[in-house]
Design a protein around this nucleic acid. Sequence first.
DNA 1: GCATAATAGGATAAAAAAGTCTTTTTATTC
DNA 2: GAATAAAAAGACTTTTTTATCCTATTATGC
Lengths: 143, 143
Amino acid sequence: MFSKTCEYGIKAMIFVAQKSKEGSRISIKGIAKGTGAPEHFVAKIMQELGRKKLVQSVKGPNGGFYLDQVDLKTSLADIVKALDGNSIYSDCVLGLKTCNESKPCPVHDQYRDVKKNLIKMLEENTIGEFNNKLDSGKFFLVN
Amino acid sequence: MFSKTCEYGIKAMIFVAQKSKEGSRISIKGIAKGTGAPEHFVAKIMQELGRKKLVQSVKGPNGGFYLDQVDLKTSLADIVKALDGNSIYSDCVLGLKTCNESKPCPVHDQYRDVKKNLIKMLEENTIGEFNNKLDSGKFFLVN
DNA sequence: GCATAATAGGATAAAAAAGTCTTTTTATTC
DNA sequence: GAATAAAAAGACTTTTTTATCCTATTATGC
């Protein structure tokens, strides 16, 4: 469904949000540990998310990553789009470049609802909203 | 969402079904052309589907692939499982090995419905059912 | 039974994704 | 302003996926 990049990116954002809520910044090393992602790999991902302004970063001692109030409104869809591009929105489920409503692939009609559902889920859930649940130990980020 | 293998496999099965309905067998070359898939790649895919008994094949002159009455009842889910394995059923959307109902990842609850929808779609649509629509030119297999 | 046309199978190659390493830059603190 | 701790950047490696090629096998029709 998502690339590893995207999976790690989402987990990282949720983890950073949590730390930000506690008022602290978190380093790459910390994110890697907290999300079970390879350190150097997650570094590249955070860089990219930083470039795209979905996360704030400060260099040097006591630096690290954090989310500001605006960042907390980032939806899962925003992260997916930043890391995996628009493929979820635009790609035909059978890989046909010219598939669309008027010239559909065989499963276009059947997949329409699934896609709508998926996109709805990605757009309606923001990073900020995951905080409360993580607090209460209702879910987990690592195995 | 699906691997290329799976995309080509689904298209190939639909295409072969069509030919079978017309009473003829279709060669790898024919399938490759009819589905826009690389010939040698689709050959391997059909081999695998043959081994798994989702498609019948006959070697030699006038040989080729075809679907019998039982094969026509193959669902999209059967093809996906044969080629991509059970990952759609079993994998956590964030890649967590231990994610489940009692120890969920952050998006487990939100993704539940999407997954249910997707699986329903894959299981409810059989290869045989696509035939009529393809006949009437209602959809396309190649760009 | 021989030529042929097809699938079967395995080896290899190319491309993309995932992951690692090293160096550079930049804040911070003392 | 020097030492340090962090991110930024880019090069590189490994693994996986996608794709190709070659040889073997097998069924068919003459």
